[in-house]
Amino acid sequence: MPKVSSNTKQLTEAKSPIDMTRTMAPEVPGFQEYVIEGLGKIAALPELSDIAQRHRFHGTTHDKAVAAQWLGRRLGGTPNLSRLLLTGGTQNILMILFSRLVPKGSVIAAEKLTYAAIGQLAMLAGASVLPVDIDGDGMRADALEETCRSHKVAAVYTNPTGHNPTTSIMSAERRQSIVEVARRHGVAIIEDDVHGFITKHAPAPIATMAPELTWYMMTMSKCLGIGLRAAYLVAPNAEKLAQLLGSIPSVSAWFVPGLSAALITNLIETGAADQIVRRISVEIGARQEIAQEILGPLGVMHTNSSSLHVWLDLPHAWTIEKFVDAAAEQGVTLRHPNVFAIPGTEIKSNIRLSLVAPATHADLRGGLFRIAGLLQSRM
Rank of each mutant, 00 (worst) to 15 (best):
P103V: 11
M95S: 13
V129G: 06
S82F: 06
G72S: 08
Y115E: 11
M95G: 12
M123A: 14
P131E: 03
E33T: 03
L94H: 01
A43K: 04
R56Y: 03
V107R: 08
R83D: 13
F57S: 03
E47W: 07
F57Q: 10
R56V: 10
A122N: 10
I51L: 15
E37N: 03
Q91L: 04
F57T: 07
A127E: 05
M95F: 00
M95V: 14
G38F: 14
R100T: 14
S106I: 08
K41W: 09
E37Q: 10
A127V: 15
G105R: 08
A127L: 07
I42H: 08
R100N: 12
H62W: 07
L81R: 09
P103S: 05
V132M: 06
R83I: 02
A109Q: 08
A110C: 04
I96N: 11
V66L: 09
P79T: 06
Q69R: 14
H55I: 03
S128D: 12
P79W: 01
G105N: 09
I93N: 15
E37T: 03
V66N: 04
L130N: 07
K104R: 12
F98Y: 12
T114I: 09
G77H: 05
Y34A: 01
Q91K: 10
Y34C: 02
L85R: 05
K112M: 14
A110D: 04
P46H: 03
I96K: 08
T78K: 12
A68D: 10
A117H: 00
R100E: 15
M95L: 07
G119N: 10
I51N: 14
K112R: 12
Q69C: 09
L39T: 10
L85D: 03
R54N: 11
Q120T: 08
V102Q: 06
A67D: 09
G126I: 05
T114F: 00
V66K: 11
Q32H: 06
L101M: 14
M123I: 08
I118T: 13
L84H: 03
F98C: 13
S106M: 06
E47A: 13
S99Y: 00
K112E: 15
G88S: 02
N92H: 07
G89A: 09
E47S: 15
A67R: 09
K41H: 11
H58R: 07
S49P: 02
P79E: 09
L45G: 14
E111R: 00
N92D: 09
A43W: 04
R56D: 04
R74M: 03
D50T: 11
